[in-house]
Design a protein around this nucleic acid. Structure first.
Length: 640
RNA sequence: AGCGGGGUAGAGCAGUUGGUAGCUCGUAAGGCUCAUAACCUUGAGGUCGGAGGUUCAAGUCCUCCUCCCGCACCCA
């Protein structure tokens, strides 16, 4: 019988900078799913790769004085090395700069253009200068800017557009008829409610403002929008082109699941399906938007000193400990956290104490009591049945959890078996049996049962902690870790030799290790600053009108995450300015303070309120500090 | 009233179609010694965000309030 196929993908990693552990989570999660599906007998194709085009990459490379290609070669290499280090069992690794991908994307773009799904527009930008925004004709209110009501200017810029709206109904139907298409459930509502139902806008799918991308081959100067480029990877990697669908494509498409971060769900559940509908290809069965891994309460960032890299974790704790933490500690839908403290706590309790110690103590006893030879399991006794049932039935429970991507729960099912085995040792007290010659056969069976249970554990663990799984197998002389063997008790043959008792996961002295880590992190990082801008003339500087204002009122803008609304005293004037610093200040601490602001910046509306000027802040890696004057000075004073 | 998801033991989380709460870690006491001061048992600890309501019976349904989070418009 032919094996059922299973195609899964991760998002391709953006090659702007070295990924941290949060970015790495996705590929480990996916790997567990891939390995698991292979384990249960499916024909799996697991794709990952790197996303290497875009303006940001071009800018970073330029700042570093190297070519974009040199930059992405370096980062893509790092990303692949991380995947390899973590034992990720990908079948394909695609880079969007790969030749075949570039050609295939050009073909896709051209086909969509020729069949009219993509059309060349003059970016009929109706531009509102005060608001600095483009509007489409339909968005205008009485021919004026819908935000501020001022007249708009018709600006033209050539660009290609994708007729999203054409497929809106079809997409909506698909989502509703396939309730599991978007996972977790809550995300589905977001997509439907925020984007699809209000009406899809045509998507601008080409750029002319930078060159690091896939050229539109029939129109020089245009580059394919990065998302069209990136999303296509899922099919181009399988050899899809518009002219010839490759063998892999015929076999594996549509994807069984795209595993991606929750932030890019919109691209995968709207743009991507619509692209496929336009190409006449089937849609993926499921898109799973996983949560984020945070450091404590915060997002990881270099300047906060809370970035954790996979490499460091692996160096200190080992690959499988890292995999275990990621797979077990991340909730299904909500963001999870990692800190060194929680990592070590988990490591000690689950891996060192429970799993590692079980294996060690069992093997030690086989060595001690039977010179390393496993006896036969024929002398039954109390507690045997419960142990066997627990071990043999775990697989079914895991299958249930894994079928809905509940990885953490699956690991808990394995833990149940491990706990049961530890308890069995206590119940059967092998050390007492060892003192009683007449109990020798029973002792042999007790140890046999333990070895069998451990063999099943090793089998069950193979999807999640492959290295540990094979280590255990080698230790107990097991050569069959198959799916089938995981549900059968009595596979090990009497007479099999075990190895020397070995510590799988050495217990970690938390205090000592944390001190070690702290010392390591204290090493100064070379400060990186944003590159300087080009010089300007004195007259240009003179155009700016920068003033001091005193904060009279300050309050959060309702519903806004970032904005604070200020009323400044500027001489006799009262001026309202919005500033996006609410994450860094509570309003009370700013009232009465002097701030520095640009007075002659054109007013602009945000969140329904008008902002007349701009309060100056200094920024470092996303953190803002408002500027003020060292000494007190009357408001309205000019900054010169 | 933009859409949606949540507030359950010190911490992190489960709780199906309503019948007075579970898991993991931590913690206390006891047991054991094969083992990595590991393992096993037992216990303490919750008025299930607040207030009403439906019901013989409500974390579990309804209403209102409150707080948190995600998504969308928003860091000039």
């Amino acid at each position: 019988m032919e094996k059922e196929k299973f195609y899964l993908t991760t998002a391709i990693a953006y090659t702007s900078k070295t990924p941290h552990i949060g970015n790495t989570y996705e590929i480990v999660l996916s790997d567990a799913v891939a390995r698991y599906n292979r384990f249960i007998g499916k024909d799996v194709y697991f794709l990952t790769g790197t996303d290497e085009h875009g303006q940001k990459i071009q800018e970073i490379a330029e700042a570093a004085g190297i070519s974009p290609q040199q930059h992405v070669d370096k980062i893509a290499g790092e990303i692949r090395a991380i995947a390899d280090m973590l034992n990720v069992s990908y079948d394909g690794f695609i880079r969007t700069t790969d030749d075949y991908h570039v050609k295939a994307v050009q073909g896709i773009f051209k086909k969509l253009y020729e069949q009219g799904d993509i059309y060349k527009g003059e970016y009929e930008g109706w531009y509102c200068t005060p608001c600095e925004s483009f509007w489409t004709k339909t968005q205008l209110k009485d021919g004026c800017c819908p935000d501020c009501g001022r007249p708009v200017q018709n600006t033209k810029e050539e660009a290609y557009f994708f007729k999203m709206s054409k497929y809106q109904k079809q997409l909506e139907d698909y989502i509703e008829q396939n309730p599991n298409f978007i996972q977790p459930e809550a995300r589905k509502n977001e997509m439907l409610g925020n984007f699809i139902k209000p009406g899809l806008q045509d998507l601008c799918v080409s750029r002319t403002s930078f060159s690091w991308g896939i050229p539109v081959d029939f129109d020089e100067g245009h580059v394919v929008y990065v998302w069209i480029d990136a999303l296509s990877n899922y099919i181009t990697a399988l050899g899809y082109t518009v002219d010839e669908k490759g063998e892999l494509y015929k076999k594996y498409w549509p994807a069984d699941v795209h595993i991606i971060g929750k932030d890019i769900l919109r691209f995968h559940t709207i743009y991507w399906p619509i692209m496929l509908m336009a190409l006449g290809e089937p849609l993926p069965k499921q898109v799973f938007g996983h949560p984020w891994m945070l450091f404590g309460e915060e997002k990881m960032s270099k300047s906060r000193g809370n970035v954790i890299y996979a490499e460091d974790l692996v160096r200190h704790f080992g690959v499988d400990a890292v995999r275990y933490y990621m797979l077990h500690e991340m909730p299904f839908a909500a963001d999870g956290t990692i800190t060194y403290e929680t990592f070590i706590a988990r490591y000690n309790s689950d891996l060192a104490n429970t799993l590692g110690n079980l294996v060690t103590r069992t093997v030690a006893m086989v060595n001690k009591y039977f010179d390393g030879v496993i006896a036969d399991g024929g002398t039954g006794g109390d507690y045997d049945d419960d142990l066997k049932t627990t071990a043999v039935s775990a697989m079914a429970a895991i299958e249930e959890k894994m079928s809905v991507l509940r990885i953490a729960d699956s690991l808990d099912e394995i833990r149940k078996v491990i706990n049961r085995a530890n308890k069995y040792i206590d119940e059967t007290t092998p050390w007492l049996l060892a003192k009683d010659d007449s109990a020798r056969a029973r002792l042999g069976t007790v140890l046999y049962n333990l070895i069998e249970t451990i063999r099943i554990i090793a089998s069950l663990l193979s999807s999640y902690m492959p290295e540990t799984s094979s280590k255990i197998a080698a230790l107990i002389g097991a050569d069959d870790l198959s799916y089938e063997s995981a549900t059968v008790f009595g596979v090990t043959k009497a007479g099999t030799r075990v190895g020397e008792a070995e510590v799988l996961f050495a217990r970690i002295d938390a205090e000592k290790k944390l001190a070690e880590l702290a010392a390591e992190m204290a090493e100064p990082e070379e400060p990186e600053i944003v590159p300087y801008k080009d010089n300007i003339e004195f007259e240009e500087w003179e155009k700016l009108d920068i003033r001091v204002g005193k904060v009279l009122e300050c309050e959060p803008v309702k519903k806004s995450k970032k904005l604070l609304r200020f009323v400044l005293e500027v001489g006799a004037e009262r001026r309202q300015i919005l500033s996006g610093i609410s994450q860094f200040y509570s309003p009370a601490e700013l009232i009465g303070k002097n701030v520095v602001f640009i007075a002659n910046l054109k007013p602009r509306k945000m969140m329904g309120l008008e902002s007349c000027g701009m309060i100056l802040s200094a920024e470092s890696d996303g953190r803002l500090t408002a500027l003020t004057t060292l000494g007190d000075i009357p408001s309205g004073a000019e900054v010169v």
